[in-house]
């Protein structure tokens, strides 16, 4: 499955009455720990970030 989001964003619903531009409702469900397969270029990039404690944006610079 690849990311296909070929739809349009509507205006806020009539019930939207927030003063601020966003509302936080809930956190995501607690994640589970799994082992990655240590292979391939994307894993190596991830491992490099993790070893150097770098975030995405720092790595992409």
């Amino acid at each position: 499955m690849s990311l296909t989001l070929d739809f349009l964003l509507p205006p806020p619903p009539s019930t939207w009455n927030s003063e601020s531009s966003s509302v936080n409702h809930a956190s995501i469900t607690a994640p589970s720990e799994r082992l990655l397969e240590p292979v391939g270029p994307h894993f190596l990039a991830y491992a490099r970030r993790k070893r150097h404690n770098r975030t995405f944006s720092e790595d992409e610079r």
Partner: peptide, 26 residues
């Protein structure tokens, strides 16, 4: 050293989402 540390669970054991994250269409 780099190979050993990259394949160690400290690096390979990671949190994974358990549910889909997405949005709703019209």
């Amino acid at each position: 050293e780099t190979i050993t540390s990259s394949t160690h669970p400290v690096v390979t054991l990671t949190p994974h989402t358990t549910k889909h994250i997405g949005t709703l269409n019209h």
